[in-house]
């Protein structure tokens, strides 16, 4: 699931700068310890998640590209909510995150709730 991280957190220059708090989250049902105080995208990049989603068209792997909410390459499912921009969401302890595989799944008819995605297919 995880690979060698593409990014690392700079170690504090002195004892006065605090180390980031470590949070426990799940990514694709695997427990992960990630640094807190940052976006979900930044947290995942720092622990070796390289593939955030697969495209709906060809299934090609994608990962964050712009980190500022413009490119939508970092879309993941967070706590059951699909198509979240992981660069705009602050990581929280206990989050359950899934990579977004292709077009997001439609909810089963039994628990159909109004979470349609304006751009989903």
């Amino acid at each position: 699931m995880t690979s060698k991280p593409l990014f690392r957190v700079l170690s504090p220059a002195s004892g006065t700068d605090a180390e980031p708090t470590i949070l426990q989250i799940w990514f694709n049902d695997q427990p992960l310890s990630v640094p807190g105080g940052r976006s979900v995208a930044a947290a995942l990049l720092a622990v070796g998640i390289q593939r955030f989603r697969a495209t709906p068209v060809s299934g090609a792997p994608r990962a964050p590209y712009c980190m500022m909410g413009a490119c939508f390459e970092c879309l993941v499912e967070i706590d059951g909510m699909p198509s979240r921009q992981s660069c705009l969401v602050t990581v929280q302890d206990g989050m359950r995150i899934h990579s977004q595989e292709g077009a997001r799944d439609l909810p089963p008819l039994s628990d159909l709730n109004p979470v349609e995605n304006a751009h989903g297919r």
């Binding site: 060698k4 990014f7 690392r8 957190v9 700079l10 105080g37 940052r38 976006s39 990049l45 720092a46």
Partner: peptide, 8 residues
């Protein structure tokens, strides 16, 4: 925003 730099 995160104090992160390329690992390699």
């Amino acid at each position: 925003s995160a104090g992160e730099v390329p690992a390699e």
